[in-house]
């Protein structure tokens, strides 16, 4: 990737496509694939439609991990594979850059670091969408370059024409990629390969682990902390609500509690009764929440990875909150006097 950047997922990184050949020649590298990334937001069906477009070499790797329906891209141009979350059908067309692209396959479980669903096109198409100018812009640029060069009196007409051709070729080139991914040969030393590429000017090699670290500690960490803060606030609010429900429910049961105490019920029976109610509420709420997640997961505008550990941790947190929330009710119940059962 480009030197002094944090990689294509974290920030802008532009490198020439042909660097892939040079990387392929590094000892220890088994295969390489140039990749292009861009976030695209267009208007579709009257609504903003945002997705993460990945361009990959059809002969390399970095394409869709699975094909749920349809097929993978076969033609070099105008075909695309989209994520299921984009809710597009096979055969549907979408206009990107200067051309229309036809959906030929559906994939899943690939998102950008921002959570946008991913779509795939060939690398050439991705480069065209990202860098190719329309004809008017090309004509304008050529005129401007020609005019600027003609103003240089010290250049001959032949030199001006040759220079114009070169400059135009460079400015109109779309052979830029965001990164080149490489797979090492079995037994190759990652550090040695990185060390060798580090010596080149303008390029920086990072491993997959380093990229993950950059993303999780940088971009995702902040989002995670924000979400964590919201979650803590929501959990505190939930705890207060559960406490109030348990407390008011205990107030409703004062006569029952007093009666139980009067007939000799031990404190553990009273505590157990309130705790059971609180835990039951938590378990039911968790089950409803889990069911809602399962039902709506695919409909989330952005993909959120929900690990089993997260669900287990949430369950433990809910149980802890329900237990703590029941303390207010338990405290009230333990203060109820058996004599309150007497009278009308």
């Amino acid at each position: 990737m480009q030197q002094n950047t944090n990689g294509p997922f974290a920030e802008s990184s532009r490198i020439p496509e042909d660097i892939a050949y040079r990387i392929r020649a590094v000892p220890g590298v088994a295969e390489v694939s140039p990749l292009s990334f861009q976030t695209i937001q267009i208007e579709r069906l009257g609504k903003p439609f945002r997705f993460f477009l990945i361009g990959y070499d059809l002969n390399g790797f970095g394409g869709p991990p699975t094909i749920l329906a349809g097929r993978n891209i076969r033609q070099k141009h105008y075909e695309m594979v989209v994520a299921k979350a984009m809710k597009m059908n096979i055969g549907e067309k979408i206009h990107l850059g200067l051309h229309d692209y036809t959906v030929v396959g559906i994939t899943e479980k690939v998102v950008s670091s921002g959570g946008d669903p991913a779509a795939y096109v060939s690398l050439a198409d991705a480069q065209n969408i990202q860098f190719k100018k329309d004809n008017n812009a090309i004509r304008n640029d050529r005129e401007r370059i020609g005019a600027n060069l003609s103003a240089m009196q010290y250049l001959s007409q032949t030199q001006t024409d040759a220079l114009k051709q070169d400059i135009v070729r460079i400015t109109e080139s779309t052979h830029t990629v965001n990164t080149v991914v490489a797979r090492l040969a079995p037994g190759a030393n990652l550090h040695e390969v990185q060390e060798r590429i580090s010596r080149w000017n303008h390029f920086k090699p990072i491993s997959a682990d380093e990229q993950v670290r950059i993303l999780t500690k940088g971009m995702i960490e902040k989002a995670r902390m924000q979400l964590g803060l919201f979650r803590i606030i929501l959990l505190v609010i939930s705890a207060v609500i559960i406490s109030l429900i348990i407390y008011t429910s205990t107030l409703d049961k004062i006569k029952v509690i007093a009666t139980l105490k009067l007939i000799g019920a031990q404190n553990r029976v009273i505590i157990g009764m309130i705790l059971q109610q609180s835990l039951l509420m938590g378990v039911i709420a968790y089950a409803i929440g889990y069911g809602l997640i399962l039902l709506t997961y695919e409909k989330f505008p952005r993909r959120i990875v929900l690990e089993t550990f997260d669900l287990q941790a949430l369950f433990v947190i809910i149980i802890a909150i329900c237990t703590i929330s029941s303390f207010v009710g338990i405290r009230k119940a333990l203060r109820v006097q058996p004599a309150e059962a007497l009278g009308g």
């Binding site: 029952v256 009067l262 000799g264 019920a265 007497l342 009278g343 009308g344």
Partner: peptide, 20 residues
Amino acid sequence: LKKLRREKLGFIFQAHNLIP
């Protein structure tokens, strides 16, 4: 006292006080 109430005493209330 609770044990004694459980084992030796029975209570009947004005408004039956059954657990609803």
